[in-house]
Amino acid sequence: MDFPALGLTLRLAGTTTLVLLLVATPLAAWIAGGSGWLRRMVQAVVALPLVLPPTVLGFYLLVGMAPGTMVGRVLIRVVGHSLAFTFWGLVVGSVVYSLPFAVVPLVTGFSSVNRELRETASVLGAGPLTVFRRIVVPLSGMSFAMAAVLAFAHTVGEFGVVLMIGGDIPGVTRTLSISIFDAVQEANYAGANRMAVWLVAVSFVALLGVYWRGARVQGSGSRG
């Protein structure tokens, strides 16, 4: 069992989930707040990782971070090196790759909050931020849980993007899925199986949590 890879995977998934919730919440609120062409376009761009091969995404991110690009130069000036083949490079890749898994549930949750509740709150003197904080967020609690769990589970299982951006550096960028791949390459099927069971368990528990919570919320009545 590759425990350093397991630790790195959980650390990557946790960090990505936190960053994703911070990034996806305002983005989802903006997307849910209207119906113009710009919103639809951003929504399509956010959903791209759902259909693109992870290696394509990883390739462009790797090229984008290269020292010769504008982003690469800014990164070198700010953090001292391009993010490729580092933990934070993996975080950037994972955030982009898992963005739709956080944004889509949040957009659905925010859009499902009764419009009349938001309008009434607004006429009663609540500005847009207050309406969001006091009405939309509390009534979208399940969507936040869903976004967090899906983002976490998706990051735990990602392979192509992390391999392209991070390579296979033990203790730095070798995640559990890459370690499984290495084990299979070495015909170490028993070792691969032990690690794969971990991934299956983490993913299953995460999804079970979402469905269990979802059933409780549905059982406790309407959300307005």
Partner: peptide, 20 residues
């Protein structure tokens, strides 16, 4: 002005109470 700046008390026809 935006609705929240109009200084109105408003009771809509459907009570629209905040369920949480």
């Amino acid at each position: 002005l935006e609705s929240y700046r109009r200084l109105l008390g408003y009771a809509p026809q459907q009570a629209a109470l905040f369920p949480h």
